[in-house]
Design a protein around this nucleic acid. Structure first.
Lengths: 340, 340
DNA sequence: CTGTTAGCGCTTTCAA
DNA sequence: TTGAAAGCGCTAACAG
């Protein structure tokens, strides 16, 4: 006697076997009609299709994953969902992956290595076929898991890890370029605002500092750095502090458009003319930056393309191919606008 | 002879059986040590824990889902990932669901019922234990699938569906309240800008129109509606059109803060004083709105709380409980600021 | 507290 | 072109 008969009052979802029985074939034939139709005779195929529609059959992913030993899913770890930077990346990732039959498991690590570790461990239980990482610092544990499980990985947004596949841009160069731009415009007391202080922000700052040093115009007094999340409100507050601690400052490189917009708004309130009295530059070219008044000079980053290219590269790795190059530098554009 | 020996050069992930063998118990005991530790003796438990750590055992979710006939996952469908409104909702959802051991399958429907249908069908294959919907219009197919599969569902953001569980706010009332606010402030030629034109935007507009009609001040000439996505740039352009088609307009209700910020920026460019010459009101209270100059009068919506409450309600339904009430109205706050 | 047995729904391998 | 048998890794059910 079957142990788990127990059919509840409510009939269960139909299975391959159910539709096989109805058509009078074996379940493997139905399976084939679904995953490799060319292996099944036309006549059978259409009868099967009808039965599928009639019974409202929905394949069971868990069973398929178990039988095939892979899941058609990709874990995507990003540090923030509220930052358009990463949702743009996600859009690029999503477009490529879904078009190729993969599901994405999106994990929000909130810029925390511990969270990242937890989420990563949790997602490993789903046996992702690949991993896309836009988070910044991996804990040793994560790195070890990554190596040990030998799951294909691609890092997104920066290029700083020589060991792994990366798609992104050189954050140092971008910071350097912006500082050069400000120097060329004639500014001489160039401060900087930074928040979050993740590795990418620090690289931008490095680039900025290097450019100033090369010009003999280092200006540490004009720097304000806070390890809390970037926001417009934070930029507002930081301008106030700059005005107090370094009133001679004539330009401000903000490591984030959020911060820069806050500075712009607060400058307007304080009747500080931008760019005449104070130039303001941002980073990332968010939607508001092109339209604000004055419009914001910033670094445009190819976020959608980064997601797209990273997913494409991951696809290759998941197929067992070796991508032609392991590092793809998608560059950046300096958008010189009214604020400088 | 085993048929599928085929052990590739690379050793596979350890299974429950592997760790059971190593400890010298049966796999069910290991299974219990993991999912119901209190059923296993302390001594065994610790030996099992050691073996798990040594072998780097990672449970296989697909196998578990197959055996238990539920997946511990929830499908969350939202119309846009680039709109903070929905990422805020997601944060609330995520916090509740992950704390309770559920995984979220996030689907971006891009405001398209067809996309929603595709994604929903695809996600059904994962046998989600519940569904959270912030998308607007369900196709008949989706509604039918929802009914047929009898998966618990909660709708988010509005309350307009009397049949289903909903957590949100009354969009009509919010539009009405904003129009009343503008009337009370003395504005008499109150136009409106709308984008996307999803049902929620239309409800806000309805509320606005009703308030104007009640005051005998209907002003259809001052309305510009576009079915394309809301953006700052669109708001910029729309102000230009308003100035041409309805120059007498003295206030503008924008169904979205994006639009309103665009209007604010463009007004500044055109030297239109806000609120003296033109009052501007938005909807949603995005991050920039409190800080712009002038700051933006808008409707603050409890997005995180909506996600939180909806997930909590879904949790109850998934446990088979009946939530005390099927509709939760979390209201809204009118933030009267400088722009009106 | 621990084990045996069977089976979740699908796909692989081999055979016809 | 179709099928039979076995098994993916885990857990429910029922002993012991």
């Amino acid at each position: 006697m079957p142990i788990r008969k127990s059919a509840p009052t409510q009939s269960k979802r139909p299975t391959l076997a159910d539709i096989a029985a109805r058509v009078g074939v074996s379940s493997i034939t139905v399976s084939r009609a679904i995953s490799s139709p060319q292996l099944v005779s036309e006549e059978l195929r259409s009868r099967i299709d009808i039965a599928i529609a009639e019974l409202g059959y929905i394949p069971n992913r868990a069973a398929r994953a178990l039988a095939r030993a892979h899941s058609d899913s990709v874990a995507v770890l990003i540090p923030s969902l509220s930052n358009t930077v990463f949702t743009d990346v996600l859009a690029g990732v999503h477009d490529v992956l879904h078009a190729n039959g993969y599901r994405t498991l999106i994990g929000n690590t909130r810029y925390s290595p511990e969270e990242e570790e937890n989420i990563f461990r949790a997602y490993l239980e789903h046996s992702p076929d690949g991993v896309l990482l836009a988070s910044c610092d991996q804990t040793p544990m994560v790195q070890q898991l990554l190596q040990h499980t030998r799951i294909p990985v691609v890092h997104m947004m920066d290029l700083s890890d020589p060991q792994s596949c990366c798609v992104g841009l050189n954050q140092f160069d971008a910071g350097y370029a912006m500082a050069r731009h400000l120097l060329q415009r004639g500014y001489r007391r160039i401060g900087a605002l930074g928040a979050q202080l993740d590795p990418r922000v620090l690289q931008r700052l490095d680039g900025y500092r290097t450019a100033l040093q090369e010009a003999g115009l280092a200006f540490p007094k004009g720097e304000i750095l806070e390890a809390i999340p970037s926001s417009i409100g934070l930029g507002v507050g930081m301008l106030g502090r700059i005005v107090e601690q370094a009133p001679e400052c004539d330009a401000l490189f903000c490591c984030n458009d959020d911060l820069a917009l806050g500075v712009l708004f607060e400058a307007q309130r304080r009747q500080i003319r931008v760019p005449e009295q104070l130039a303001v530059a941002g980073f990332n070219d968010l939607a508001a930056s092109a339209w604000s008044s004055p419009s914001l000079t910033t670094i445009a980053t190819p976020r959608y393309d980064i997601g797209h290219a990273a997913a494409t590269m991951l696809l290759q790795k998941m197929r067992g191919e070796t991508p032609p190059e392991s590092h793809i530098d998608l560059g950046f554009s300096l958008m010189a606008r009214e604020s400088t």
